[in-house]
Amino acid sequence: MISTIRVDPANAEQARAWDGQEGAYWAEHADRYDRAISAHHPHLLAAAGISATDQVLDIGCGTGETTRDAARRASDGRALGVDLSAAMLRVARQRTAAEGLSNADFVQADAQVHPFPSAAFDVAVSRTGTMFFADPAAAFRNVAGALRPGGRLVQLVWQAPADNEWFLSFTRALAAGRPLPTPAPDAPGPFALAEPERVRTVLEAAGFTDVRLEPHSETMRFGEDSGDAERFILGMLGWMLEGLDDEGRRRAVDDLRATLTAHETADGVRYASATWTVQATRR
């Protein structure tokens, strides 16, 4: 439980998850998560266009791969990664030290309310880390205040669930015939920024202009084979089995195993996925 940093009360549930078991699981499997999204990662870096002297803010940095890549590009600048998860930040700091990067720092913080220095950054980036704000307008206003006028915001966010085969396949299998939950379109979650018009509305209200979205479709890798992927997915989404009886649990696991087996390739278990890179300029 977070107790030493300022967290907006509206983000308390996210804080409990990311600074609790969910964040700990991501920290434990950092390499898997980085590899899963590796095909999308270059799109974010290309859009960010980080220069040697840039001051970079990485929002929801997790275990710090994006922060480290930003720091390497900003060789005469600095990169600051912020995240709610102490466990993931420990991994980020360890890996940064092991790589000998001296211009990357990490802070445990809720980016929605953290008192960033005013107009201190040239670019803010985020790799699937901005969709969980309870009040995205307030969060992006806070980020805008940390950017210099003309500074850039570049995010990688998921497109709609219908365009992400991995999400639909896993959740339908583990639902075991139960209706899938349908959160409100503006509720915090992986697809909260999937709708382009909502993204434009939120960012423009927060002080950004020239909002642009570019689509990307790539495959994601979830394991060496179906057995390896099954263990990983059940560790990540096993909460979906809660409330099922023994027969329901067997059905769910069997359905998951079937879809994973059907998606085995010579290069692991792979599913289609779709993201947006979102670019905007601070007024």
Rank of each mutant, 00 (worst) to 15 (best):
N103R: 07
S226R: 14
V123H: 01
Q94V: 13
A48M: 01
H43K: 02
R231E: 13
V143K: 03
V211K: 09
D34K: 01
P117A: 09
T171M: 11
A119D: 13
N164C: 14
T261M: 09
S38E: 12
E204Q: 14
R32N: 10
T66V: 14
L57K: 06
E247K: 10
T219F: 08
G235V: 01
P196Q: 05
A176K: 10
V202C: 10
G145S: 12
F167Y: 15
L174G: 07
R127I: 02
F208V: 09
S102K: 12
Q108S: 02
F116N: 04
A144M: 07
V157Q: 10
F140T: 06
N103P: 10
T128W: 13
G189E: 01
T128A: 01
A205S: 14
A92T: 04
L193K: 03
H40G: 01
C61L: 03
A15S: 09
L256D: 00
G235R: 08
A229K: 01
A274F: 03
G64Y: 01
E22C: 00
I59T: 08
R283C: 14
L168K: 08
T63M: 05
A252H: 06
M220N: 10
T275K: 00
D122V: 06
P188D: 06
A176L: 11
S126E: 02
E264Q: 11
A111W: 06
A48R: 01
A79K: 01
V82R: 04
G227M: 00
P196C: 07
A86P: 11
D34P: 02
T63D: 04
I233M: 10
L193C: 06
R72H: 12
H40K: 00
Q108H: 07
L193W: 05
F167D: 12
L84P: 13
R200F: 06
G238K: 05
V125Y: 05
W158A: 12
T261C: 01
T259F: 00
L203M: 09
V91A: 04
V123L: 04
R178H: 08
A47C: 07
Q21D: 15
A134H: 11
C61T: 14
S102E: 11
A272R: 14
L234Y: 03
E99K: 01
M220P: 08
A46D: 11
V107K: 06
R78T: 13
Q112V: 05
D83A: 03
R127H: 10
A176S: 12
G20A: 05
V82C: 10
F232I: 09
F140E: 08
L101Q: 08
H41S: 12
V253N: 02
Q108C: 10
F116V: 06
N103D: 01
P190C: 04
E230N: 03
V107W: 09
V157C: 12
D267E: 15
M88Q: 14
A192Y: 02
R249A: 02
V211M: 05
D105Q: 12
F191S: 03
G177H: 02
F106C: 05
D31I: 09
H41P: 02
A262C: 07
T265S: 13
E165F: 05
F167V: 14
E197P: 10
Q108T: 09
A109G: 12
D110P: 10
